[in-house]
Amino acid sequence: MVICIIALPVFALLGLFSLKYRILAWEAFHCLFRTVAFKPCNTGLDLKIKSKFTAKLMWFPALARGFYKYFAVLSWIFVILALLSVAGTGYGLYNYIKYGNCNGPDSSAFCIFNPTRAGGEEQCSTFTQKTEVDVKKVNLTGAVVRGALYAPYAIVEYGCYSCHYTKEAESALNQVLANYPNVKLFYLDVPLDIHPYSVEAGEAAICAGEQGKYWEYHDLIFERQESLNDSSFRAFANELKLSVSAFDKCLDANSTKAQLEMQRDNAFAAGVYGTPTFIIGKTVLVGPQEYEVLEKAVKKLM
């Protein structure tokens, strides 16, 4: 009886903890061999499964009768479903190992193995509805470049300094930039109102950039993201030996605020609904990504 194909792994697993199930696993093992040889199961395991389940269903007699009568057919259905499930799991594992995403390349669907990363379901957003990101509408005005300015390939990142997912994305992103010198990063800050200090941090970074220390300031904000407070930004400026008066002046300037607002408006206009969002050629990735995912997208450009 084919049901032993399912019974064997189930009882073998339970058998790790109980002798009762070890005996059943042994019966399933014998039954499996006989089934493969087109012989009827002689351990009685199929009868046990059929009878016990039928008895449990007796509270609804029609269901019990149906189960009893079509047990062989149901067994085949369960076995086929189980085999499909095993095949699907195997395929997912293969994808996960190869692409870092169990759903395969270019997928942004939910992945049970990596729910917070490869699937891109998790991001910082004020939008309740997800929108389609239009690559053609990406506006790089105000973007800060990391890496070689003349590098032929680019990753565009929309991030937010108070978003822990943006912070989480940093490691893999920096690794890609380090390993691929012909790739540069365009970073566009999109401060979200839901996060405290996101606007202040964005403005402070712009002002640090005016003194040539954007990326040092950028890295410092993410490093201390959890402890940002009113005095953090000036303290960071001091730590990076910036001119505090120039820094303060910049912070007070309307142009700084305007630049940030413009970046945010541009991002929303392009359909960006959450941070971090990566645009690599025509590939749009939302949420923190594994190194392999970013690398694969970059390689596609080359």
Partner: peptide
């Protein structure tokens, strides 16, 4: 019915 099925079902009760 296989007699073993009868005894197995009754065992459930």
């Amino acid at each position: 019915m296989n007699p073993h099925e009868v005894s197995l079902m009754l065992d459930s009760y």
